[in-house]
Design a protein around this nucleic acid. Structure first.
Ligand code: MN
Ligand code: MN
Ligand code: MN
Ligand code: MN
Lengths: 222, 222
DNA sequence: CTCTAAAGTTTGAGTACTCAAACTCTTGAG
DNA sequence: CTCAAGAGTTTGAGTACTCAAACTTTAGAG
């Protein structure tokens, strides 16, 4: 089994590679995500390459191998199942569970994670709307678009909040901006780069485009 | 916070000190429990002493300080609450939960352990009958005596199985030897150092005195 | 009281991870 | 086409933990 540190590097690489248009991750970005210096990241990448978990040539981009991607997906599955468990079973606030899962994901055995998966009824998304990979590593990603791309008058449904910071999640929850809620764009001012959105049953709130970009809504709605 | 390694040393020391008549733990025993060499244990004890977690003079016995005992009790509380949770909520087998809790005990925050404690209704004993320290570190130990001290004809109740090995726990469970069960000593042969015990609703089984010594029963019963 | 076996210590080395700081390579703005 | 800024690398050092093996101290059997 990989160490806790290696698992964290792999999970970060999975996100970075999948976000990147080239499919490759960069060292400086990786180091920033993990909170280490770039020298530290360089030597770890070298070790991951020796273990055939990543492919990386000198001064070139980093990609996960099949083995590395599989291991990373496993960590991500544990992370998201744990978040779901902490919210649904232990009633923790969704703005705190990310940090908890960040540690627990390295301590749960397959036995425990399977039991949690069964207890929750094999959920397909976590409390933030992120898809949970299944046991075989497959992810069924619901198609979506950023709320910031919506126009005035649009009615849609929130599917995902793509920010793990407790502060943003707390703000979002206070305004009802959680996965599943019906959403109406009451106003959108391109000059002010702001939009007024209302979650069903809550008061409307002004969001900057940057903030609205962190919220994903259903793809095919008017 | 102490590292995972330090927490394991403290928990082992708590058990060793409390088992010892002098209240002091020995290095060789400690090293054996933790699966390290005695040289390794020596240097760790030196570091724990620097951190005021233990008191140990050269070539003398090791005792936990108040600070060390408190930290150790906290780990033990987490361990036993987790075992209880794994058995009651996740339906894991009681013979497997010790190893799982051994890792999880270092990854759960106070927030999570409090939520688990509440979910379980503040249990006072774990699945093996071991007492769970409360939040303040207090332990209410039920008085008991070893089953090996019982005589033929005794009827009593099992309160604790003092062995964390999966093999012994599996054997015990197969014969109904779990905390709470009514027990009858059908026969006791001092020469053979064996006794025939029956758990209510199960077939009788012959136990050597050594094995019966790992089972604790109610103190004040005939 | 002596002496040796067991308990405890020390030393030197190795792995995993980290940083700071000096360095080299690549790339795109001009 | 050039050359600096940014990306990536290397080096030297430090912390936490570990082992093997040589060593010293203690205590109890005789
Ligand atoms: Mn993590
Ligand atoms: Mn999440
Ligand atoms: Mn442990
Ligand atoms: Mn137990």
């Amino acid at each position: 089994m990989a160490t806790e540190t290696v698992e964290n590097y792999l999970k970060a690489l999975l996100t970075l590679c999948d976000e990147s248009p080239t499919g490759e991750a960069g060292l400086v970005r990786l180091a920033a995500v993990l909170g280490v210096t770039k020298g530290t990241a360089t030597s770890m990448i070298k070790r991951l390459a020796e273990g055939k978990l990543v492919k990386a040539e000198r001064y070139g981009g980093i990609t996960l191998t099949g083995k590395g991607r599989r291991a990373a997906t496993d960590v991500l599955r544990r992370h998201r199942l744990l978040e779901t468990f902490l919210v649904r079973t232990l009633k923790l606030d969704w703005s705190t569970v990310h940090a908890e899962a960040e540690r627990l994901e390295h301590a749960v055995s397959p036995l425990v994670i399977d039991a949690i998966d069964a207890l929750l009824g094999h959920p397909s998304v976590d409390p933030h709307g992120d898809p949970i990979p299944d046991k075989s590593g497959q992810t069924r990603a619901a198609s979506s678009r950023p709320l910031s791309a919506c126009a005035m008058g649009d009615k849609t449904r929130l599917v995902r909040v793509a920010d793990q910071e407790g502060a943003f999640l707390g703000f979002a929850a206070r305004h009802g901006l959680m996965p599943g809620v019906r959403l109406t764009v009451l106003d959108a001012d391109p000059q002010a780069q702001s939009m007024l959105v209302q979650a069903q049953g809550h008061d409307p709130v002004w969001l900057a485009t940057a903030a609205a970009g962190k919220i994903a809504v259903e793809a095919g709605s008017d």
